[in-house]
């Protein structure tokens, strides 16, 4: 086999081109693993809720398992926020679930601190806790109960206690606020306030 300079050049040209052709094949991009028919990485949510922060009242939709929140984002149908939420609203999921687990700071059992004690004790059941609280309420109420007061020599029926105060409610639902008001007034409370005043 004889080889002319010309043949050689031709051959090297072909060889180089072969290298490049192989390159072209090898350089081809891998098929996109994330093409347009991609599934959502998690459900967006269907349970309508209203954000618990400011008074705008934005709608949100939540997706949850039995014991954890999977996603909470703005409710696109809601006429006020139309799907949008601020930083706090977007973080709603962490009220319950942080990094896939229960928010470790959430309270999960009734706690009790005895007089002069340096620590919390867990109260194992609600019934005990509420029984203890009801006892305190009754005791204080009975001790501080005012049937009547005397103003300028005249006696007036007042049926109240100054010994118990109730605070709160701005974060609760209307039904909860209503029952709190009903309970407080039935107990004869006059020191009844919440964050609307502060």
């Amino acid at each position: 086999m004889e080889l002319s300079r010309r043949d050689f050049l031709k051959f090297s040209g072909v060889a180089t081109a072969g290298g490049l052709a192989a390159a072209k094949m090898l350089e081809a991009q891998p098929v996109s693993a994330e093409s347009l028919d991609l599934e959502l990485s998690k459900p967006i949510g269907e349970v309508p809720t209203i954000c618990c922060y400011c008074g705008v009242g934005c709608g949100a939709i939540a997706a949850a398992d039995a014991d954890k929140v999977i996603n909470i984002e703005g409710d696109p149908d809601h006429p006020i926020n139309q799907g949008s939420l601020c930083s706090k609203g977007q973080a709603l999921a962490q009220m319950r679930t942080v990094n896939g687990k229960d928010n470790p700071n959430r309270l999960t059992k009734p706690l009790y601190r005895a007089p002069y004690s340096t620590e919390w004790e867990v109260i194992e059941d609600w019934d005990t806790a509420l029984d203890m609280i009801a006892d305190r309420i009754k005791k204080t109420r009975d001790e501080t109960w005012l049937d009547k007061i005397d103003v300028g020599g005249t006696s007036y029926t007042v049926n109240r206690t100054d010994g118990i105060a109730e605070f709160g409610g701005g974060e609760l639902d209307n039904e909860e606020c209503y029952l709190l008001a009903k309970m407080a007034r039935a107990l004869g409370l006059v020191y009844l306030e919440h964050c609307a005043r502060i």
């Binding site: 072909v14 290298g19 490049l20 390159a23």
Partner: peptide
């Protein structure tokens, strides 16, 4: 990268050619 492929291609081709020629000889 192109250069790399070209270089490897050229070298490989050259060696193949050499083999054929040398063997024939």
């Amino acid at each position: 990268k192109v250069m790399g492929y070209a270089a490897v291609g050229a070298v490989a081709g050259g060696l193949l050619l050499n083999y054929m020629v040398a063997r024939a000889r």
